[in-house]
Amino acid sequence: MPDLASLVTVPALLASVFFFIAGSVGLVRMPDTLTRIHALTKADNIALGLLVVALLPQVGSIADAAKIVAVWIVVQISSGAAAQLMGEVALAERDAASSGPDQRGMAGGRDA
């Protein structure tokens, strides 16, 4: 019985760690805010989903399983909304940076 559970847990956990690392590397290596958010949210969502899949066979009761799934849902809601929010701010800043220098006739402005 524990072997069957491990058969699901171990590969899912390893895959989860891989995606978490990929997301973190993306966060550090990507060139600008939007792509960084993209890397982080996409990879981390998959990683978290895999983590939930890995943990579910290990829990002792339906209630514990429900709690893990509930945590997953709440993280999905909040991380998705936070990413959208940061994306909006990043877009607004980029627009301000690209249109700002032209409007004010400033030389040597940042080009986006």
């Binding site: 709440v74 809601i77 909040s78 998705g80 909304a81 936070a82 959208q84 929010l85 909006e88």
Partner: peptide
């Protein structure tokens, strides 16, 4: 209020 915050308020507050 940005759209994601409104969504978050509606989805997260009951929980």
């Amino acid at each position: 209020s940005p759209e994601p915050v409104v969504f978050l308020a509606r989805a997260l507050v009951p929980i």
